[in-house]
């Protein structure tokens, strides 16, 4: 009898609890996604949503709205959420910095600046065409912020300050460039806020390979990052090639952020909030943190996109504005509560 009590080891029960949490979050995401298909400017019934998905009628206005507009928008929010959540978890684990976020460190801003230059200079407005420029911008900004931030051994405060300064600079340059041409103002007004309005399936399909490659690299880097969280020397002692692990994680971040910005504009703060929630649910293991981030990110962005459709926010507020409105206070709260210290 006592034997059976010892049968369930703490590790096993923690693992099953984690599995349950992940399943619960996925269920929550499914419910939220269904709601995102149903509600909007013209709410539809559940039966209409079901019919639009299973028996599509191209002559039915409600079906066109659900299948042609809300479904790509939902898919965009899910993909962007997963990408930003994963890249936030990677960047926080890699720098051991709880305040690291692709938006706050200027990586999203760099990608956005690249895109704006592309729109302005070459008149390209198709996300699938400017994704390479977005990737280049994200790469340049990441390299710059890590050089300015003092490399891998720097203090958390220095990295965040360097990143915040760099992103302030990039935002100012982006705005200045956009003002030069008034035609881009309309693109700017909606794209720069970050949102999923008007995403077309072709864009999603074109960007999917970049996102998949980024997610694959993130999964490969997870084990190395686990060791890195113990410290540089310990990781080396365990036989981890720390430089390679960092490079893999860094490439994943650039791919995920660049593709997301090309798709939906610079969405701030999702990468800051999501990994904290994920670590709380997953415990210290980086592989589980990444898995939870990949579910919590879509939860946050689909919820933000849905909330933006409430009449309270004018019926069509961009998801990026919602995340910034939530994320700024969360950042301030974290700074006030914990100060700035290492993970």
């Amino acid at each position: 009898m006592t034997v059976s009590a010892f049968d369930v080891s703490p590790a096993r029960s923690a693992a099953s609890l984690r599995g349950l949490r992940l399943a619960g979050s996925l269920l929550g995401l499914a419910v939220l996604s269904a709601a995102a298909l149903r509600f909007g400017f013209r709410p539809a019934g559940w039966d209409t949503v079901w019919a639009a998905l299973t028996a599509y009628d191209p002559d039915d206005a409600a079906h066109i709205v659900i299948r042609g507009m809300r479904l790509p928008r939902l898919a965009g929010a899910v993909l962007a959420g997963a990408a930003l959540g994963i890249s936030g978890a990677l960047i926080q684990g890699m720098t051991r910095n709880p305040l690291a976020d692709p938006g706050l460190l200027g990586i999203n801003g760099g990608a956005a600046l690249g895109v704006v230059i592309c729109i302005l200079g070459f008149g390209i407005t198709d996300p699938a065409a400017f994704v390479w420029v977005a990737l280049g911008g994200a790469l340049a900004a990441s390299v710059l912020v890590f050089l300015l931030g003092g490399g891998s051994g720097a203090s958390p405060l220095r990295l965040v300050l360097a990143g915040a300064a760099l992103s302030a600079l990039i935002i100012a340059l982006t705005r200045a460039l956009l003002l030069v041409s008034s035609q881009t103002l309309d693109v700017y007004r909606f794209w720069v806020l970050g949102g999923f309005d008007g995403i077309v399936p072709a864009t999603l399909i074109a960007l999917l390979p970049f996102l998949a490659l980024g997610a694959g690299l993130a999964a490969v880097a997870a084990a190395g990052l686990n060791a890195l969280l113990l410290g540089e020397d310990t990781a080396r002692g365990l036989g981890v090639r720390t430089g390679l692990a960092r490079a893999t994680a860094g490439s994943a971040i650039v791919l995920l952020c660049g593709a997301t910005v090309a798709m939906a504009g610079p969405i701030a703060f999702a990468g800051l909030i999501v990994p904290h929630l994920a670590r709380w649910a997953a415990g210290p293991d980086m592989r589980w943190t990444l898995a939870f981030s990949a579910v919590f990110g879509p939860l946050l962005l689909v919820a933000a996109d849905l909330a933006g459709r409430l009449p309270l926010f004018g019926g069509n507020m961009q998801a990026g504005v919602m995340t910034a409105l939530i994320g700024g206070p969360v950042l301030i709260w974290m700074v006030r509560r914990n100060g700035v210290r290492s993970l």
Partner: peptide, 21 residues
């Protein structure tokens, strides 16, 4: 100083988003 600057940056980003909205 460190806390003030980070708080200020957070406020700045939120307010910029509000201005964009």
């Amino acid at each position: 100083p460190g806390r003030l600057i980070l708080t200020g940056i957070g406020a700045s980003l939120t307010l910029t988003a509000a201005a964009d909205l």
